[in-house]
Design a protein around this nucleic acid. Sequence first.
DNA 1: GCGCCAAAGATTGGCGCCAATTTATCGCCT
DNA 2: AGGCGATAAATTGGCGCCAATCTTTGGCGC
Lengths: 256, 256
Amino acid sequence: MKRTRPLKRRPKRSEPKHREPEAVDPRSIDDDPVVQGILTAISQKRLKPGAKLGEDKLASAFGTTRIHIRQALSHLASRKVVMQIPNRGAFVYRPSWEEAQDIFAARRIIETATVSAAIDRLDKAGKAELKAHMEREARHDRNDRWASLSLTAEFHILVAKLAGNRVLLEMSRELMLRTSLAIATFEQPGEPDCSPDAHPDIGALILARDRAGAIHAMRHHIEEMEQRIRPKEGEDEVDELTAIFQEIGARVRAGG
Amino acid sequence: MKRTRPLKRRPKRSEPKHREPEAVDPRSIDDDPVVQGILTAISQKRLKPGAKLGEDKLASAFGTTRIHIRQALSHLASRKVVMQIPNRGAFVYRPSWEEAQDIFAARRIIETATVSAAIDRLDKAGKAELKAHMEREARHDRNDRWASLSLTAEFHILVAKLAGNRVLLEMSRELMLRTSLAIATFEQPGEPDCSPDAHPDIGALILARDRAGAIHAMRHHIEEMEQRIRPKEGEDEVDELTAIFQEIGARVRAGG
DNA sequence: GCGCCAAAGATTGGCGCCAATTTATCGCCT
DNA sequence: AGGCGATAAATTGGCGCCAATCTTTGGCGC
């Protein structure tokens, strides 16, 4: 039923009372499918550092609008996963050699502390999770490169979860992503990211509550990863060559 | 001079060559004045957790357009400094009690490691910087609340800088901001954030290259800060009251 | 008097269009 | 034949408008 009498015109609204932001579904942009897609593409190394992320292409690829892509890209830029250059566009982030070393150093610090905290808080459920993961990692298909990468990441994330500190968990997530970028930028092609035997060792030491041993194993594991990358000496030259080869390849594929 | 002959119409452009994003001024959004303004306002506690950050108001306050504000707010939301709720707006982030504890735990881990690294890398220039800061902190006006807060933050940032790891430096920056939010949310009103004598002690121990002592002092310093906050039991009630008092205060200041 | 309902106001979200800049291509000159 | 400048295409950046949603507020019934 409609109102029988129109409201009077009010001169001006009073100062709005401040309502606290109550618990109302703070769904963050991390759950965004575009962000997730780009993130998994990067961690699976299907997007290489320096790759152009055109807005229109991403929009049509993900079936959304350009404005949505822009939000996702600027979010990823805030996380230093993509680099945005004004009027040029967004590219997959390429860390410098110094930054790559800093990332590994940060991981040494945070993940050793994480291992220690995980041992402190280890309970029945945690042991079960850890065992389950170790089994999955033991009998996975080593030829499936993407599955290997996913499992390797999940192990470190699991340890961070067991530590029970969400802030450290988020930091570990960020550092693992940036580690992927560092490795992709500076690796000698063809080598795996992690040595395949490191994770079972660390897991066993955590289950045995051997704090010093687990910390040492984790530190050694990260140092092993770090020693697998090398600075690119004639970086400009190499880049130019690869750029030329890419160009030639593109031309050949285009049938020109 | 104009062209004498018009160009032929080309059927379609070939696949664009991939240009690497060379060193071209990657000026990030961190330098944005809006971001900087909100950040300093938060670290100076002029913006309290839960405060509404309306887009129009910020736009007129900073003298820019709304789209610019949106970019800044979503960037700050990515850094968990503001919380964005769909169709409700942006608010200064209010960490939960568990998150506040996690933040302090993360700082214990990162800043103790940072102190250790700073001692390792300490050189003439670093000593000079540290001494200069300690002098400034020794003879600053203790009644100037904003200056105190700035100096307190600068000390921790300086230690992180001396460690020579930019990734850890960024993490320390983030954690200090979130510490401000945690303290602002859970502090008993009126107490200072840092005990005033802690920083000179830590600085002196770093200068003396007393690693164990400096690490212990830093850990103790952070634990002291942590023990200054208490979970809010009747949270709703307190929040409502403070909101009322804030409103009344604003009206009085506005001369209403 | 107290609580529910509906409308107006205010705020955010999103889409389309256009300007600004970059990138690629072509013709010309040396 | 190859470098150089001009031009078109493509891409990004930004502004304005309008729909969607939330908040406030007054009216109405109990």
